[in-house]
Amino acid sequence: MIENLAAGVQAFTSNAFLVAGEPGADSPPRNDANDANDAGRRVLVDAGSNFDVVARIGEHVEDLDAVVLTHTHPDHVGNLAAVRDAFDVETWGFDASLDQVDNELPDGGTVTMGTAEYEVLHTPGHKDDHLCLYAPEAGVLFAGDLIFQNGGFGRTDLAEGDRDALIRSIDRVRERLDGDLREMHVGHGPSVLDAPGEHVELAVRSARMG
């Protein structure tokens, strides 16, 4: 189960994805005594901002095992303090020197979310600490603010933005995909569940032309 907890929020926020159980499965039953085993490692990917994400997490699971950050722009971490307080949970991200990151996820490392293992890809260009998370066996990519639907790509006019680095990062993701990408979950806008690899290819071309 991968659930966008920011769906329908009108305030300025990133998406915030709750990952529990098998990708593509329905939400695990909240009060099932065996839920913890079925859900695997319950992880929030980005915390979003300006809405009550704690309440939305509670609609699906009773506890949380970790928060993984694609990067630390304010719209992705604005709710983080509330999540930490509510669930007594630690965070993982690329740069553990930042206040929002308790534990380092190094480039080339792995992290378990739900029941799937994700590869960690350092993908700067939008922000220096940006990560993408890819599960080859499950065919799932969390693209953060690197790639969006219909060939969109992350802005590079903010601090730490670098268009050339962004293009290299998109290329790296495109080359790593094994051709069986089934789901791409992005930092803003809808997830891409129909031929997401085509959207990655389009983003490469669009970033070079933009």
Score class of each variant (00 low, 15 high):
53 V>G: 14
55 A>H: 13
56 R>N: 12
57 I>M: 00
58 G>Y: 00
58 G>F: 00
59 E>H: 02
71 H>W: 01
72 T>A: 04
73 H>M: 14
75 D>W: 12
76 H>F: 13
79 N>H: 04
81 A>P: 06
82 A>E: 14
87 F>G: 08
87 F>A: 05
89 V>H: 06
91 T>D: 05
91 T>G: 08
98 L>R: 15
99 D>L: 01
100 Q>L: 02
100 Q>P: 05
101 V>F: 01
102 D>Q: 04
112 T>F: 00
114 G>K: 04
119 E>W: 01
120 V>Q: 13
120 V>I: 14
121 L>Y: 08
122 H>R: 08
123 T>P: 07
123 T>N: 08
124 P>K: 10
126 H>S: 09
127 K>V: 12
127 K>F: 06
129 D>T: 03
129 D>H: 03
129 D>A: 00
130 H>N: 07
135 A>G: 13
138 A>K: 03
145 D>L: 04
145 D>S: 03
150 N>S: 15
150 N>E: 14
152 G>W: 05
156 T>A: 05
160 E>L: 08
160 E>P: 12
164 D>G: 04
165 A>W: 05
171 D>K: 05
174 R>Q: 15
176 R>P: 06
179 G>S: 02
179 G>R: 05
183 E>Q: 14
183 E>D: 14
184 M>D: 14
187 G>P: 08
188 H>W: 12
